[in-house]
Design a protein around this nucleic acid. Structure first.
Lengths: 221, 221, 221, 221
DNA sequence: GATGAATGAGGCTTCATTCAT
DNA sequence: GATGAATGAAGCCTCATTCAT
């Protein structure tokens, strides 16, 4: 309401956002457990105690990071499929997801690696935004089934999981492959570098037609 | 050296195996970082210090567990596809993998959740048995491509990753769904229970023919 | 300096007094160490920093509270014995003290419990108002001895301490007994509730005649 | 059962006792809150972590210290009045208590100062051994009343409290007076040194006959 | 080999105090 | 004067690892 309101609110949001960004970087670099709160504070350019003005605990910091980033992911995906013809929405969804991974590798690393990590969070905390993600993907598949375009024999929630599994594994492989590689790992052990954006077409191809050779596909059934 | 050698060696192996089994249970229950070495020792029925006679460190314990279990998995998979006609090997591989998950949920939980755990292990340590797993799966796919049965436009190592991603995600969803679950989680948030063994057919269906409705598949291309 | 001086000074005193009152309540509720400066500020309706405009530190706040309250106590006691015949002053003193405890249980709790709190305050800081309290009580006793009404074999400063000990212990027992008590303490463990004002007569009786049965008292010596 | 049992048990008890003794000294020196666990460990000649093998927390350490020392006090008092004619038990009790204070000033300091300190412990934790102490003292008084030797008009539990108050205050004054005195306190502010053992007779005198001059006592009533 | 009591480095977190607004 | 967000020092406690028995 006052002239200060806007800038104060933005200051506050700025600092909160800076801490989240710093946490993202540090979690990506060391993993949640190995990450030190003091290192996050240093990276964010704030005092250790300041983090606790914005987050209840280190755990809360990770959860907040999940929620914020997954919310952004869901919003981006929702936009990506908005106005797209139903039959092309699955392709749009997959492409948009891998594009996000490409554009925000740090976020992808945290979401991909830490998300499932440590039963701590998978068991006691059900990421509501991840649920939402699966719901959106499942909705696209269900609509396709209703239109008769997609095979109805695979339960939608299972199919959604499988597709997420593919995307997630590709994201992980890509994220790990693009590391500067600190250690002198034996050649060939690290995942080969590849174009994650281009990989979207492979996922789409697998999901829509499977791996069966097109030559055989017509006569297969 | 003595007449006791055999039994002593077997005693030694027994104890090592007991510790690994205990570690598997505790890691599955709490996750690697939250697991306490002393709890593993208690579960194994040995003293804390005894663990360090068989393993260099807690890290080494997890890595050894990975190697041992993945080696067993690879052996089981190798047996499962041995003697199977090449065109049926992919199906056999997928079925065998999910059957193993079903039979050894504790091992599956550790492999699935902790495997990607924390850059700590994915970056500094390349699980050689996991590489071998991907190589085996990739080999099946490459052979199929060479026989002209499988589409060659998707790189083999990418396709192998995608398939592993599906299997891994299904395993994770299934493992988490079967928890007794202490807390009263909101309805619908926890993955629905499903038959992981039956899910194999869905994976095979997706991988071979995709999700496109069979009616359309013929006329699609 | 300005025409506002008076009201400003009184504003200032008001705020200082509000902070002292808030501190008294919070110290009584949690004890000095467990009390948070920010909670005192909130109770007083001022900002955290404001407290430091009126007090040097948290320690200073406690000490100021002691001085202020003990000064009030001493004034009240001085008034209570003023104009009272010498031989009745001890009784008046004791009654007035326990009446004060009854009327200001919060102050009593802080004075009683925190007064001897931690060597921190008993060793490095000699509460001058407490000294004054003992001096006043000792003066009454000395006068009684001089008049031959009181036995001179017990050193005055020791007798004063003993009387204060009785009063203080009764105050403590009474203050703790009147707690709403959150926890369900085992029956009989918490001090029984009693009338602290009426207890004054018991103290007077003990101090003047001891516990020896009146029947025996005459023939005792 | 084995030859090691005895010494092992005694080793364990030794270390526990050493930690308790160290805690007693450090608590007496700085007070509970200002005392540092690491300083206690150093004083006890053990590592910081070792303390947590014997006590759950710093709080538990203080509570254990209370219980142990008060148990010893109660045992000593019970022995002191055993075999003493009922009419002399009160005197014996008082003397024994102040003798204990004299012999164990460190314990007395902790019990006296920290016992009531910090509502934390007085509100949430009712020292069962202190209850027992009051019960023993009350029992002596009740027996005296039944025999007609003591005046029955003061409730026993109140009288017990008053006597404890006297003893406690004397103990406190004596403990604080015997300090080497680090700070340069103004002369006369610190309690005068006195013989705490001799003070027992003053307490007995006050408790039995009051302060009224013996000359007047006979004609008083 | 086996034990498990002891170690002690190091992290998360709190909170009295400051100071720019 | 008043504010309250920010600071950062410092403490309690954990737990992987060691080593004397």
């Amino acid at each position: 309401m006052t002239v200060h309101s806007a800038s104060e609110r933005s200051d506050r949001n700025d600092k909160r956002e800076r801490i989240l960004l710093a946490a993202e970087r540090i979690f990506a670099r060391h993993g949640f457990f190995a990450a030190r709160v003091s290192e996050i504070a240093k990276e964010a350019g704030v005092a250790d105690g300041t983090i606790y003005l914005y987050f209840k605990s280190k755990d809360d910091l990770l959860i907040s990071l999940f929620e914020q980033r997954m919310t952004q992911v869901n919003e981006a995906l929702r936009e990506a499929i908005a106005g797209v013809p139903p039959k092309d929405q699955l392709r749009a969804f997959i492409r948009a997801y891998l594009q996000l991974v490409h554009d925000e590798p740090g976020a992808a690393e945290v979401l991909t690696i830490e998300l499932r990590q440590s039963s701590k969070f998978m068991k006691e905390y059900e990421n509501p935004q991840f649920i939402e993600f699966l719901r959106m993907l499942g909705g696209i598949l269900a609509a396709g089934q209703e239109r008769g375009e997609l095979d109805g024999s695979i339960p939608v929630h299972i199919a959604a999981r499988m597709i997420f599994g593919m995307l997630d594994e590709l994201a992980l492989a890509w994220v790990l492959a693009r590391q500067p590689s600190i250690s002198t790992s034996a050649p060939g052990t690290r995942p080969k570098k590849f174009d994650i954006v281009r990989a979207a077409d492979w996922v789409v191809a697998l999901v829509t037609n499977g791996l069966t050779s097109p030559r055989l596909a017509g006569s297969a059934k």
